[in-house]
């Protein structure tokens, strides 16, 4: 076991080029795998759009009611909230908030042992494939709701050119954070065997603290700060959405990226630790 992780750890130049090509291959496989689920993609996009419609009206009503009393809805204008809702619906599929049970399934079926026989770190392999999947989702599940929302409603479009690359970086970081959370939630299966409880808790946490059900800014400041720094929640959706809607200036945008990056590093490290523990458990106890 030590031998396998050791090869994945050491970074030499030759190793690096090999790794890069491995990432490409794994990523491409993730892309292709999801490209074959074309019907499922269509179904999911339609579903996201229906919920987008409903949430938009609620948010617009909030904005209108706030404007009527001479305030704003937590600093967002109506068109910004429209963008917030539709981009949020699109990002559900990109970061893949729900429905990833690959690892849990493999643990339960025992197939996970096969992964250990491969000379690639499982965290790394799953993450590379996840990037491919996210790239495909960006072209389909993100693009379609965005266009739909823009056609139906008066949607805010970011003015500052720098916002676009910042948004992309933020989406990549959000995907890593979300992947790590999913991986950790799934990994509880090594010890608990039943994923349902953890899965439900994750679904509620991610929707509520991620900023999907309502912008985190709607909460009192102390609660928002607690979520931002105490949990990875806002790094999942809130960060890319706030970057995109340009609610704040670029220093705040960069700050949010920083928080995301910190969570990404911390959580990936945790994934490695947990995975190593789990491997030791598998090797010692034989599953």
């Amino acid at each position: 076991m030590g031998f396998i992780t050791a090869t994945a750890d050491r970074l030499t130049i030759r190793n690096f080029t090999e790794m890069a090509s491995l990432i490409r291959t794994l990523g491409a496989s993730g892309f292709r795998r999801f490209a074959t689920y074309r019907q499922a993609t269509v179904a999911a996009t339609v579903t996201n759009s229906v919920f987008g419609l409903l949430r938009t009206y609620v948010m617009l009503a909030v904005s209108a009611a706030a404007t009527a009393v001479g305030a704003t809805a937590a600093g967002y204008t109506g068109p910004q909230l429209v963008l917030y809702v539709w981009a949020g619906q699109g990002l559900i599929g990109v970061v893949m908030l729900w429905g990833w049970t690959d690892l849990a399934d493999r643990v339960r079926s025992g197939d996970v042992v096969i992964d250990l026989l491969r000379p690639v770190d499982p965290v790394f392999a799953f993450l590379a494939a996840d990037f491919g999947r996210a790239a495909y989702a960006m072209l389909t599940r993100f693009a379609v709701p965005m266009v739909t929302g823009a056609l139906i409603f008066d949607m805010y479009l970011p003015h500052r050119p720098a916002t676009y690359p910042l948004f992309l970086v933020s989406v990549v970081l959000a995907t890593v954070v979300c992947f790590a959370c999913r991986f950790l939630a799934n990994a509880t299966c090594y010890w608990l065997l039943d994923y349902r409880g953890v899965g439900m808790a994750w679904a509620v946490f991610s929707g509520l603290c991620g900023g999907l059900f309502f912008p985190i800014r709607f909460l009192p400041d102390w609660a928002a700060a607690l979520l931002w720094f105490g949990t990875p929640g806002p790094s999942l959706l809130q960060a890319p959405l706030d970057v995109l809607t340009e609610r704040d200036g670029w220093p705040v945008q960069l700050g949010m990226l920083g928080v995301q990056a910190a969570w990404a590093v911390l959580l990936l490290w945790l994934c490695r630790v947990v995975q190593r523990r789990a491997e030791r458990k598998l090797v010692v106890q034989g599953g």
Partner: peptide, 10 residues
């Protein structure tokens, strides 16, 4: 949470 922002909705 939504009603934290506004006194009434619709």
């Amino acid at each position: 949470v939504v009603f934290r922002q506004v006194p009434a909705l619709g």
